[in-house]
Nucleic acid binder design. Structure first.
Lengths: 348, 348
DNA sequence: CTGAAAGCGCTTACAG
DNA sequence: CTGAAAGCGCTTACAG
């Protein structure tokens, strides 16, 4: 056998010639289609391996109108641990199926381009499908752009219009309810909540769970117990300062995410309060920060990577199906409570 | 003018027909090539806009052998704030030049696939070029895989073999030296250092800067003042516990990154030490964590997004040039010291 | 079970 | 300044 140039210029024609078959047969083998004799298939496969043949994806895309590219859309790429987890999970699913992951960002409306630029980007990015993350997955303009581009999409943890597309989710509300009840059952009666941004559905659902738990116990949560936050650590710090300034201090603080909980820890330190002795603090998400905080943060584990992985799977599985968007599909993943060191019964 | 189907099936042929020119002329206009009359160019451009034409990237790739895809390679995608920043910067440069960003992960050697799987992935990912981040950018196997694939690449903050490829960097050593001297000038004489992982060149360079600063002042740093860390917050916590157990406690701790500095803060809190009164703690990187910590962390700003942006720019600029890799190119970006609240003169 | 033909939508190389 | 032809490397649709 002649040595081929090392630059990987081996094409389907070379394989066909070496195997003594037509390129169509090679194509069938490559794509694991039926209708090839076992012997032929084995022979072609061996030649493919020895010659190190990899199909040219552009050619494949051009004729099949598939790109083997999945886009994952974020609002902010720089800020959250969340982004990394989503990418890890999505890449796992992509890799299994021979797809690659392209990261896209919807710039905020005030930025040059904004949703408009995003929509244009979608058109020449030739995705086979996209995964939408919160809060982008609830943005009407973004949804419109994706649908106009005719792209199949799956949403992660959407907050509205559940029939509009397949999605992956976990029960934030129920988890937050359990988290709150855990504090209640420890003996806490003045439990405060640090809320997230209004455009994040998860923040809303978690707040609902918190309120629901208190009402279940016959307590109407006071408005001043719910402090505004922005999912960022600094906002948790500020919110906690406000909560600690209340005439009747809460004995426990439930932050809608771990970042804010860490901010709450810092505020407690500033005020000379020992956690969990003087104040219990719990978070939500179970990011590495939660494990690294001191004291280690009691929180709720959100299976972020797994949710992204499931989303990509649903997307890819649906490619064969014309009616992907019609088939209202949803996959629910489980959370779990993570007991660590930042919550304890109140002193008095 | 007839209304075209909304699915974006407009091709170069449609434009050519509508403009009364050949597809070659349209191609010239699209690609901003010379040799088109001003009037013709304007007319084509207008038709392109009104018809909403976007070139099919697969077709373009197939004939031009360009993919307009840039890969960015990480070791871990889930763990660091760093990853997000790199992506933000890289996407900025990609967007400007009409490229898209694909995220790839080199799995650790023990994982299924490992570098082998990575190399295969490279081959059918059809990147025009890749950006290598630390510590992957110093991994001989990864470098070999990229070079074997014949891919142009730019490294961010490499630690070795600087002639091997273009790269972007900042002077970690000098920054760490300044950071250490800042503590010295406050009056600190027992300054400890929390080191990063051995495979991260930046950790080594920062340690060198620390040692150099002390030697400049006539002090030979004691071995026990340099504590091993892993760039993760928990390791900073543990390292600090060891440092605080020393017979002669350090009065200041310089952590090789912010995450570990935050861990140091937590350890100080655990031991009832008030920062910066009883102990000064400084970090490196200027991540959001540094701003959110309490007290807010004095650190060094590393322009991570800008470095990634510059790397992608160098890559794209070099595509025209056959001798990209021969042209030893390097771009240095500036750090800056960020003074916040976690460092102060020692008590005694 | 297998293949010959046409075509996907561009760019390259060449010609004028 | 402009264009006709060939070709990139596959898959689709059809035939046998």
């Amino acid at each position: 056998m002649q040595r081929d140039p090392p630059t990987g210029k081996i094409t389907i024609v070379d394989i066909a010639r070496a195997a003594g078959v037509s390129i169509k047969t090679v194509s069938r083998v490559i794509n694991q289609e039926e209708g090839v004799g076992d012997e032929t298939r084995a022979r072609v496969l061996e030649i493919v391996t020895t010659m190190g043949y990899r199909p040219n994806v552009s050619a494949r895309s051009l004729s099949s109108r598939r790109s083997y590219l999945i886009g994952v859309i974020f609002m902010r790429v720089g800020a959250y641990h969340y982004v990394g987890e989503v990418q890890v999970g999505a890449m796992r699913a992509c890799r299994r199926a021979g797809y690659h992951l392209v990261v896209e960002q919807v710039l905020p409306p005030e930025a040059v381009g904004g949703v408009q630029g995003f929509a244009e980007g979608l058109r020449d990015a030739r995705f086979d499908g996209v995964v939408l993350t919160p809060p982008t997955c609830d943005d009407p303009e973004v949804l419109a752009a994706v649908e106009t581009a005719g792209l199949p999409y799956v949403r992660i943890a959407p907050h509205r219009e559940f029939e509009r597309s397949p999605y992956v989710f976990m029960d934030d509300r129920k988890a937050a309810r359990e988290q709150t009840l855990r504090l209640w059952n420890m003996g806490h009666r003045r439990i405060a909540f640090i809320d997230g941004p209004a455009d994040h559905g998860s923040a809303t659902r978690r707040r609902q769970g918190y309120i629901e738990a208190l009402r279940d116990r016959g307590v109407e949560p006071r408005p001043e117990w719910i402090a505004k936050g922005e999912f960022l650590s600094l906002s948790g710090f500020d919110a906690t300062e406000r909560l600690l300034a209340l005439p009747e201090r809460p004995t426990a603080i439930f932050a809608a995410n771990d970042e804010m909980a860490v901010g709450a820890l810092a505020a407690a330190a500033k005020h000379g309060l020992s956690v969990p002795r003087d104040l219990s603090v719990v978070g939500f998400d179970d990011t590495p920060t939660a494990e690294a905080a001191w004291p280690r943060l009691t929180t709720v584990h959100q299976p972020t990577a797994e949710m992204a992985e499931a989303a990509v799977e649903m997307l890819i599985d649906g490619f064969g199906d014309e009616r992907l968007r019609a088939r209202v599909a949803a996959r629910q993943l489980d959370y779990s409570l993570v007991q660590r060191d930042s919550a304890a019964p109140p002193l008095a």
